[in-house]
Amino acid sequence: MKPLYKVTFHNAGRIYELYARKVASGALWGFTEVSELVFDVHDGMVIDPTEERLRDEFAATRVLHLPMQSIVRIEEVERKGQSAIRDATTGEKVVTPFPMPGKPR
């Protein structure tokens, strides 16, 4: 079985936690390559909005080239946990709520 990595990095004032099957030193100096991103696949009605947002954001991504200074940590893990986007200052999860009917945006 291929190894699984939890990659935590800064991006635009937020902390992203993603899971990937491949992590390597990049061909571009100062960058780390993260590829084969892993997302939960739900067949039922319960959908994690954060996981869905991350899947949409990185759907067409083959390889992430992350600057080394943006990486907080890379862990090899046995199983996938919950992917997350957190506020960099508070550490609280950032969840985009579903639009409410009748409320203006």
Results as ranks from 00 to 15, higher is better:
Y16G: 00
Q69L: 06
E17I: 04
R21V: 06
I47Q: 04
L66K: 03
P3Y: 11
E76S: 07
S83I: 13
F9G: 00
S25A: 08
E36Y: 13
A59I: 11
E57G: 01
K22M: 04
R73S: 10
F31G: 09
I85T: 06
M68R: 12
L37C: 07
A84N: 02
W29T: 06
A59M: 15
M45E: 14
F39M: 10
V41F: 04
S25N: 11
K22D: 03
E17L: 05
H42Y: 12
D87R: 09
S70I: 00
H65K: 14
N11S: 08
R62T: 10
H65Y: 10
E17W: 01
I15S: 05
K22I: 02
R62L: 12
G81L: 03
I71A: 02
Y5V: 01
G26C: 04
F31T: 14
I71D: 00
I47D: 01
A24W: 07
A59R: 15
A88E: 08
T89Y: 13
A27M: 14
E57R: 04
V41Y: 06
L54Y: 01
Y16W: 07
D48L: 03
E92M: 14
A27T: 12
Q69P: 05
L37H: 08
I47W: 05
P3K: 13
H65C: 04
F39A: 05
H42S: 09
T32M: 05
V72I: 09
V63I: 15
R55F: 12
A27Q: 15
T90C: 07
T8Q: 13
K2F: 09
R86F: 02
S83N: 15
S25Y: 04
T90G: 04
A12S: 07
A88S: 08
Q82G: 02
F39I: 08
F31C: 12
L54E: 00
H42K: 10
S35L: 02
E51G: 08
V34E: 05
T8L: 10
P49I: 08
F31H: 13
I71C: 01
K22V: 02
V63S: 11
D56L: 15
A27W: 13
R21I: 05
V7Y: 03
R55M: 11
F9S: 00
R86E: 03
I74V: 12
D43L: 12
L4N: 09
V38R: 15
K6S: 11
G91N: 10
H10Q: 12
V7A: 07
T90R: 10
M68H: 09
I47M: 05
I47H: 06
V41A: 05
Y19V: 00
R55T: 08
P67M: 05
I47F: 08
D48K: 02
F58V: 04
A27V: 13
N11R: 15
K80H: 12
K2I: 05
I15D: 00
A84K: 02
T8M: 13
G30V: 05
A59Q: 14
A24H: 10
V7K: 04
G44I: 03
